[in-house]
Nucleic acid binder design. Sequence first.
DNA 1: CTTTAGCACTCCTTAACTTCGAGTGCTAAG
DNA 2: CTTAGCACTCGAAGTTAAGGAGTGCTAAAG
Lengths: 357, 357
Amino acid sequence: MELTERKKKILRAVVEEYINTAEPVGSKTVQQRAALDCSPATIRNELVALDKEGYLEQPHTSAGRVPTAKGYRLYVNELMRERRLSADETEAINEKLRGGSHEKLMADAGRMATELTSYPALTVSAAASPTVKRFDLIYLDPNSFIIVLLLTGDTVKNKLVHLPFSFTENTLRRLSAVFNASFTGLTEDKITSDMINSAERAVGDTMGLTSVIAGFVIETLTSSGGAGASVSGEANLLKLPEFQDPDKAHRLINYLSDPHNLSALTGTPDFGDVKVLIGPENAALELRDSSVVLASYDAGDGMRGLIGVVGPTRMDYSAVAAKLSYIAGGLSRLLVAGSAPPAGFGKLMIKGGHDDV
Amino acid sequence: MELTERKKKILRAVVEEYINTAEPVGSKTVQQRAALDCSPATIRNELVALDKEGYLEQPHTSAGRVPTAKGYRLYVNELMRERRLSADETEAINEKLRGGSHEKLMADAGRMATELTSYPALTVSAAASPTVKRFDLIYLDPNSFIIVLLLTGDTVKNKLVHLPFSFTENTLRRLSAVFNASFTGLTEDKITSDMINSAERAVGDTMGLTSVIAGFVIETLTSSGGAGASVSGEANLLKLPEFQDPDKAHRLINYLSDPHNLSALTGTPDFGDVKVLIGPENAALELRDSSVVLASYDAGDGMRGLIGVVGPTRMDYSAVAAKLSYIAGGLSRLLVAGSAPPAGFGKLMIKGGHDDV
DNA sequence: CTTTAGCACTCCTTAACTTCGAGTGCTAAG
DNA sequence: CTTAGCACTCGAAGTTAAGGAGTGCTAAAG
């Protein structure tokens, strides 16, 4: 059943007022805020109706109204006015987001999101099963070499290997050729022991070099798969009135500090650009009385990432959504185009003294 | 002036009791705990003396005593009994700390420290101005290549570069040779524009490739220099009675979340194995009523690292010190020997299905 | 049928006051 | 120097009272 125009206005007023003050909203305040030409008594009648329909609730009899999850949901879906970013804001974002590796960009974007919303920000780089695009072994000395893997998404991974026995540069070259031939383009689950054994035979490797390298490949593919989740700005929660109880804050911060939990958020379906999960809509118990706003971005090469914030259900959804959306857009642009010349190109400067990072 | 034996016993009893309970300690409790054969009244007299000498203080008249920073200091320097780790504890640490890159080890060690002490842990990899040991360029296609730097400390850094114009594999080979010849073994501040210009001339590079590469070298050296500080387990603070005030907790967590602040701790002088900074002994205002315990480890190649925890001044210093010291020792062993065969060597296993990280 | 003024009522918040008890400092005797 | 005894202090916790914002209901007016 569709709400009347007036009820919508009232609901919007309650939500927006509550977002600002974190205090239950009374009929008189609504009247002022919504600029309706009817008396508080009339509004009270409407409030009772909204209450019955489940959009609002009272912390206790004789207190003002507070939006329920259902109320916020309606607000987000229909009532919220689109928020435009100010020039200052977009500029600040553009300023901060200037290339670098995917990891660095994610970290910068997270900090940015925290700064702009003053809520903890989380970043997750989604698990589009990566494969190795290219494979190199750099010979250092008879006992050590570096493995360099170029993955889809243009991520480069490396590892320095020391071994207790020696080998020749030539062996490495052969290994490199074999791996490039047979291990590129495969997701982790496609790599079998048979393949490794036959590679071993092909090189004539009797020392187990092949398995060391294959081990690193597998480790890298699995870890870059589910990986890349982090949070920043958790401390901001403590300033919010809803987290004055240290125990409550502790539970949430603790939950957020486990990357495993963050990755789980990737699972939630993605409708369009920005996704809003309000209170009990969250699967995780720890998030049940908080809200999560997520924006996804394209990281190129079929990879997706997520940037979002966690805050109280009382959250300025439209502002947060706008900011995250803009940041996500920026990330997509930087990562998917990718071919922007690296910073410092052509205008290299050498710093005189030593200065801070 | 040296304290009498009895006063020392009493001070120790007060400190240890306060560490356990976080409540001011009264004369009666001391009597029981220190197993002294004198009456509470006698102990009261002694407490007054210790109070006058600045080792103890009262939150208010007619409350028990609480150690001052001076009291803790004496306790740590002279009164504390050495704490041995249990077999379970050493085993847990050995279990968790098993190779990997320096970064991964640091992260593991930090998590370990948090887990064992239930205080936030911090890790700092100290800034022994790194240099490039070796230099490689991997040609991918006419517009892109990978830079691979092997730094002192056996850290490997890389970057994928896309350029808007093309170059040949041969050019890269020449560049690589020039950089290996002239940029290895130099700290960041030794690299001048002149050097870059002459390198450019030596290769006959007219496209600015040289400066792109030099830019990455400089960026890497500066960032690996001051870098590598992180915290884990901040949320644990919230469980402590001294951080029930969200504001207080917020200030500290916020302070810790800036890596810059952590790096500053490296500056403090290092006496021996473990370093204890009690309350006001800390330079930073935000740490003035907390304590920091730091253990340093040798990361090989002249690099040092720090692992530590932050907690209330009321902290079980001997247990914390023992744990950190053991972890630091483990890190040194793993990093300085370095040549342990990589995990999975010889006994490579392929996992059947897909499982979580 | 909707709107509105009036009014009794609910229930949270705050502050002031009480009680309770752990712990003290002091005194005087052992 | 030690110790028992005792009055005193002061925070913690509980109780009560006042204040006030906001409600729901009723009844009259539009």
